[in-house]
Design a protein around this nucleic acid. Structure first.
Lengths: 223, 223
DNA sequence: GTCTATATAGCGATAGAC
DNA sequence: GTCTATCGCTATATAGAC
């Protein structure tokens, strides 16, 4: 089913390693494989081979295949949680305070796009587990998506009260904006790398999306 | 792995059926199962059980598991191709001719959202196969997504030339708009049914998305 | 810590009776 | 057209030597 393990970047370090080193090495090849083929599409044999150890070693470090998968999800959710939350960056806080709408949306879009591009494996893992209705989807949802809705929703509400934005349900606006970003990332991951339907830089995408959200595409404002 | 086959709506018709009837019955339960658990996550035994027949019957109708999967994808791509293409509807053609921007985008969004809601199985199947890099993704892409970019892109270009829309790469605008729609559907399918992050009608969503795309959310047009 | 060898179960797929 | 029975294979997981 999965042929070329070389592409996985299999570490052919066959010499003896410390427990922890081996453990994280197994983890790292497993991430690649699970993110490529999903949980049931990946075999422990493949993982062992890609890590350059016997299957028994995998089961020494992780009692079951499911436990290995969980370890990855935990690891990834934690690690990503740290670097993905864009609104905690200093620049973003400043933009929010100064009501610099464009900066707020542009920064968010750009940070998200870059992070998603940096960790394609995590994106694939997330989608696989969402489809499989694995708990990662829920954890990620609670830790990241939900707060993001709150943050952006609150900002929009503030700007509406200030009379700067027109009336519209903030959560719907958030969904629209996140939709542009995530759908674009998803396209990049799943199609565009081969099919080149749309080939633009992250900066360009972030700028376009922020402008569309704020100004729309019509020339005349016919409200 | 997959416990409650009852939820699949397993047909417990055990009496003798005609070949075609049995074939499409197997197809229909297989659609449910594949869309829920993906290709490698679904076993032929489950399919047989859900269809109320023996495994041997499944293999009489479909030589291999892969062939069954293909039959589903073909079937679904065809069937959906017919009803999903929104720009062929009369109302949509009229709106395009009359340069009724709002109607064009609203109709497209609403049609897409309704179709996607009608056929959740197909959406899940599509995502599974996209992640698995199955050919359905490519077929669907060529038959549906690509023409949609062309259609909407051409409309936007026309309106830009007429001076009604500001300069912006049409394909990026298309991506932004489709992003809102598809991401919203995806959320409905994967999360919202349980978590109720955002609970709005398709009409409301289509209206909001069309308005955001066309007018943005700012009150003043500060170009 | 790592291996080979193996247990056990479940998979896709087939044979042959009815 | 449908079944039971079973094959050959591969999956996860374990035992025990080094």
């Amino acid at each position: 089913m999965a042929e070329n393990l070389e592409k996985i970047g299999a570490i052919t370090q066959t010499s003896r390693m410390t427990g922890d080193a081996r453990r994280s090495q197994i983890l790292s090849v497993a991430i690649k494989l699970f993110s490529r083929d999903g949980f049931s599409g990946t075999t422990t044999k493949e993982i062992a081979r890609a890590a350059g150890v016997s299957e028994a070693m995998v089961f020494r470090h992780f009692a079951t295949k499911g436990e290995l998968y969980h370890a990855i999800l935990d690891h990834k959710t934690c690690e990503s949680g740290k670097f993905v939350l864009p609104w905690e960056a200093a620049a973003q806080k400043k933009a929010v305070q100064e009501n610099n709408d464009y900066e707020v949306f542009y920064n968010l879009a750009l940070t998200a796009l870059e992070n998603q591009q940096k960790d394609v494996d995590f994106m694939r893992l997330l989608f696989h587990s969402a489809l499989e209705e694995h708990e990662l989807a829920q954890i990620f949802f609670q830790q990241f998506v939900s707060p993001l809705y709150d943050f952006l929703g609150a900002y929009i509400r503030k700007r509406q009260k200030a009379g700067a934005m027109r009336e519209a349900e903030p959560r719907v606006v958030v969904r629209a904006f996140l939709g542009m970003i995530i759908h674009h990332s998803l396209n990049n991951i799943l199609w565009d790398k081969k099919r080149r339907l749309l080939n633009i830089s992250n900066e360009e995408a972030a700028r376009s999306f922020a402008e569309i959200l704020l100004k729309g595409i019509l020339k005349e404002n016919k409200k």
